[in-house]
Amino acid sequence: MLAFIIRRLAQSVLVMLFVALIAFVIFRYVGDPITSMVGVETRLEDQEIMRDRLGLNDPVVVQFARFIGNALQGEFGISYRLQQPVTELILSRLPATLELAVASALIALVFGVVLGVFTALRPKSFLTAGIMAASLVGVSLPTFLIGIGLIYVFAVELGWLPSFGRGEVVDLGWWRTGLLTESGLKSLILPAITLSLFQLTLIMRLVRAEMLEVLRTEYIRFARARGLSQRAINFGHALKNTMVPVITITGLQLGSVIAFAIVTETVFQWPGVGSLFITSVQVVDVPVMAAYLMFIALVFVLINLIVDILYYVVDPRLRVDGGAGN
């Protein structure tokens, strides 16, 4: 177990180093940091002095090492646009994105599994045909269209839910949450559904395919031959085996939910990390872009690591202890 975790950790570090290299290249070579910071009016000699002071004339390797050293301390420089430390900016936006991502991941997981199991167990039902057709629409419609459609129906026409923003938030000191106020919860519904739909259809189709596959296996036939009840077979045996790959994929999807939140956050003007990134791209706020890249990579790497460990816990075959005695 320990060796396995250490190996995975080492891989994670490698991946992060590689992403850091890309972030560094963006940070250092997209635009000129000095001009971006001080504007074109500053005298060239002064610019040169700053360049020296900031170490921009040092060898690239030294600069990269410094970049990583800073990154390890959570230092990504100052946003050109907002003149605020980048890390502070991202941390202040993070709760909004995480609440949105977790809410939609939960929606996607719960409905995805329920619908997937249903369609696998009732392959000939009309409802299944309807769900499968709807899911095709779900994967093929772009997120922003779904978002705009939902806004049109539930905010504009029906007026039930707000169309943008996060509603009232409560400051817990280290976390600004929208989950404790009514307006905050109402504001969460539409963006969370929008963001979840794609993953929901994905999970549903995955669960369905896996479950159908599992139901054809010999151990399910043997379970039938032993006279176990339909319920024990479907929800005891088949579901557990179905969930092993589903856990992996769903876990990994959480990473992409956070990454894909960009579009949803933009449509709903959700004050999260994604919309911060979009505005940064528009004004070439390079430190924010580089830090966002590192942040998303970190999210993926961490989730990957957790999923692998979970997988390992769920599937006894992967555990090496116990030994294969005869």
Partner: peptide
């Protein structure tokens, strides 16, 4: 009626 299948490798649920 009890039944014994051909392949014991696949007759038992690996997760239980």
């Amino acid at each position: 009626i009890g039944m014994i299948f051909q392949d014991p490798l696949t007759s038992l649920n690996p997760l239980f």
